Simulated assay, not measured.
Amino acid sequence: MYVTLSSESTAANQTLAPSLVFQAPAPQQQQRSYATGTHLFHEGDTANHVYEVKTGVLRLTRVLENGRRQVIAFGLPGDIIGFPNGDAHHTDCDVVATAEIVAHRRSTLETGAGDPETHQRLLHAALREISAMQDHFMMLARKSASEKVASFLLAISNRTGSPRGNFTTFSLPMSRADIADFLGLTVETVSRTFSILRKDGIISLETPQTVLVLDMEALLDASQTDD
């Protein structure tokens, strides 16, 4: 998942994202449960599979030349991650929240021997990833720190939130450090922005990992740039 700009001005951001329909894996696919902390692959590993997230959350990271970590993206239900750079993975990937994942063999997909519907779904996922990545880069360049954090919360809410009365609640299994490394911010800035959003009555934190959105319109406003 990338934090994007393209859909923020639409009414879709004020409603929950539709549920995705997953089909049972075909014989050439593998479906497994992965515990938190498990690594699916490391940067440089041969990319024999791409991975379809059914439940849970994955984290894609790279370590920069200066030793700092960059969180590239989060894999949420409905995402397909692990598209390679040539024949190798170009990030590390580990599990942030226990996940059910379907592994699709690259060899089957590339030879056309797999299910045509699966091919189509993976193609659409790849195109969505490219578009979302471009929007994410634009967001990193244009938005203020507080707008980035609000955009992140809005994106997670739209993807995984569930209604609770007039409000929306969602789990936030990634750490504040993960969010900071994803948005190019410091942990202190992320924590301060959370505190401001709480003080303004926009969100409530039932636990550090459970967010209740009290005012979706205000969160949308907080996510948008003025220019």
Rank of each mutant, 00 (worst) to 15 (best):
S19D: 13
L153R: 06
R106N: 12
I101C: 01
H89P: 00
Q23W: 10
A145Q: 06
G56A: 05
V3K: 05
H124P: 08
R62V: 12
H90R: 04
N13A: 12
G44D: 00
H90F: 09
V63Y: 08
E147F: 08
S151H: 07
M174E: 10
V95I: 02
Q23L: 13
Q28H: 12
T189A: 10
L122E: 02
V3E: 09
M133G: 14
E65N: 15
P27L: 01
T168V: 10
D226E: 12
A125R: 07
T36L: 01
M174D: 05
V71W: 15
A177Q: 15
E8C: 13
H39I: 01
D181A: 10
E65H: 13
M216R: 13
L60H: 09
C93I: 00
F74R: 10
D135V: 09
N166Q: 12
I179E: 13
F170D: 00
T169R: 08
R68I: 12
P77C: 01
S107C: 08
P27E: 00
S151Y: 12
Q224K: 15
N66S: 11
E117W: 14
G78A: 02
G67F: 14
H136W: 04
K148P: 07
G67R: 15
A180G: 15
S171H: 03
V53C: 07
L127M: 11
P84T: 02
D92W: 08
A113N: 15
I130P: 09
R105S: 08
H104K: 04
A99T: 00
Q14F: 14
I202V: 15
D221T: 12
R32E: 03
Q120L: 14
S33K: 03
H42M: 08
D115Q: 07
A150H: 03
E65G: 10
I196S: 08
P173L: 00
H49A: 00
A35L: 03
I156E: 04
M133C: 13
R164S: 11
F83H: 09
D92P: 03
D79N: 10
L5H: 05
L219K: 06
G78V: 00
Q30K: 11
L172S: 02
A11T: 14
T193P: 01
D181T: 07
M139V: 15
T193M: 02
V53R: 03
L214W: 09
H42W: 08
R128A: 05
T15C: 05
A11P: 08
S9V: 12
K54F: 02
K148H: 06
G75M: 03
A155I: 05
T15H: 06
N48H: 08
N48L: 04
G112H: 05
I196Y: 10
V3N: 07
R62T: 15
N66Y: 11
L5R: 05
D87F: 11
D215S: 06
A35K: 07
V53N: 04
Q28T: 09
L20D: 02
T108E: 08
V21Y: 10
